[in-house]
């Protein structure tokens, strides 16, 4: 049976879809069978991030409404043969219930080790539908006040669904942490008080449409933590400490 993990944040722009895609790739590199499922009906972007938008024939709404078999809606990744994507669509004519999605997931569950559910932003019906289908949750939080506040509210909602919560701090800027101007990942973990799963640094490649295959190391550490249960953290700060670190900080800040 696959571990069904919802990737959520509450706040938009925290990096749920990017993290979902890259974590899926990192898990596949560890020879895990992974399914990435886009649960965002309307604002679906997982297919774009995974660069398979041209290959979409059927989506998960077609599967839920029995217009095709689950296997027909799966798209295999070009580089990682154990990684599959199930895209979503722009609109659903009828209300999609969590029970209907659960049935699809249970049919797919035997064939995978991990099913990552890319949750929509917010904590309304789309969020609840995704959370109801999952056994665990990864809360993606940016180290900003608004990010921490929204993550805390999201965690409170998740606790009502009795699912295990772990936290990933995304878009971390080592230079700002070294200056004391940004919350460090450990401060965020301390405030939110849940299992720390990983730290992902801010990466300019995301803004250049190179969403996939970002610097692999942080995601490999994250995937390893998820598989083995260890708590290794990627170090974003040490390169910005010391004399040369101070110069790097100044350049980074001014750019």
């Amino acid at each position: 049976m696959a571990r069904k993990i919802v990737v959520t944040s509450g706040k938009g722009g925290a990096g749920k879809t990017t993290l979902c895609a890259n974590l899926g790739l990192a898990l596949a590199r560890l020879s895990q069978r992974v399914l990435l499922m886009d649960m965002d009906i309307g604002l679906n972007n997982l297919d774009v991030v995974m660069r398979v938008e041209d290959k979409v024939v059927f989506d998960f709404i077609d599967v839920v409404e029995n217009r095709c078999r689950p296997s027909q809606a799966l798209i295999q990744d070009e580089n990682e043969p154990t990684l599959y994507i199930m895209p979503s669509c722009h609109l659903a004519k009828r209300q999609i219930t969590a029970d209907a999605v659960k049935k699809v997931l249970n049919r797919l569950s035997e064939g995978f080790d991990y099913i990552l559910l890319d949750c929509p932003a917010g904590i309304d019906i789309g969020f609840r539908r995704a959370v109801n289908c999952a056994d665990e949750a990864i809360v993606v939080v940016t180290p900003h006040l608004s990010g921490v506040r929204d993550a805390d509210k999201t965690i409170t909602e998740l606790q009502q669904h009795f699912i295990g919560v772990s936290v990933v701090v995304n878009r971390v800027r080592g230079d700002l942490i070294a200056e004391g101007e940004m919350l460090s990942p450990f401060e965020v973990f301390s405030i939110l008080g849940h299992t720390a799963l990983g730290v992902i640094p801010e990466n300019d490649d995301v803004n250049c449409n190179l969403n996939l295959h970002l610097s692999r190391q942080p995601f490999d550490i994250l995937a390893n933590n998820l598989v083995t249960g260890s708590q290794d953290m990627y170090d974003c700060v040490s390169r910005y400490k010391g004399f040369f670190g101070r110069i790097k900080r100044r350049f980074k800040r001014n750019v």
Binding site: L145, V148, R149, G180, E181, M182, L183, E187, I191, L192
Partner: peptide, 14 residues
């Protein structure tokens, strides 16, 4: 040493 925003973030959550 805590960052400038730590206390504010903590009090917000509280």
């Amino acid at each position: 040493m805590n960052s400038k925003e730590y206390k504010r973030a903590q009090s917000m959550v509280l």
